[in-house]
Amino acid sequence: METTRQTETWNNPPQENKKIVAGICAILIGGIGVHKFILGYTKEGVIQIILSLISCGVLGIIPFIEGIIYLTKSDAEFYETYQVNKRPWF
């Protein structure tokens, strides 16, 4: 049985997993929505900034929890959930 391996070519670059960067940014500076922008969720990033300003940072617990969730998922599960299926919240 022959298995095929995806090779890197000019028109088929390897997929980038942003799990570590998004998770650490969510934990450290999540109140300003940086982790949302890293994952490509511009609208949700702006919403996160507005919620942080309105609540004077109290809702900063939400990105902290998101960061922990990001870091505890397996690489494949994170990639499938947040980068392929584009699930913006939790």
Rank of each mutant, 00 (worst) to 15 (best):
L71R: 06
Y82L: 12
T7E: 12
G31K: 04
P14H: 05
V46Y: 01
V84L: 13
I54N: 02
K73T: 10
T4D: 07
P88M: 14
T7P: 06
Y79C: 08
T72S: 13
F90A: 13
S74K: 15
A76E: 15
T3S: 11
T9N: 00
K73Q: 14
Y41G: 02
I27E: 03
T81C: 09
P63D: 08
T3A: 10
I29D: 00
N11I: 15
E77D: 15
G30A: 03
N11Y: 11
S74P: 07
G40C: 07
V21M: 06
V34I: 08
F90C: 13
C25M: 10
L39C: 06
S74M: 13
P88E: 08
G57F: 10
T4W: 13
I65A: 08
K19H: 07
I50K: 04
F90V: 15
I62K: 08
V58F: 12
H35P: 07
R87M: 14
T42D: 07
L71S: 04
V21T: 10
Y41P: 06
Q15F: 14
E66R: 09
L71Y: 08
K43S: 12
K18Q: 09
T72W: 14
P88T: 09
L53Y: 09
C56G: 04
K36A: 08
W10D: 01
V58Q: 00
Y79V: 12
K43F: 08
Q15L: 15
I69Q: 10
Q48C: 15
I20Y: 06
G23A: 09
I68W: 14
R87E: 14
F64N: 03
Y70W: 10
I54H: 03
A76C: 00
T7N: 09
I32H: 03
T7W: 07
F78G: 09
L28D: 01
G33C: 02
I49L: 06
E80H: 15
K86D: 05
G31T: 06
R87K: 15
I69T: 09
L39Y: 02
E77H: 14
P88Q: 09
I69A: 10
G40S: 02
K18M: 12
G45H: 05
W10A: 07
I32N: 03
L59D: 03
Y82N: 11
F64H: 05
K86T: 09
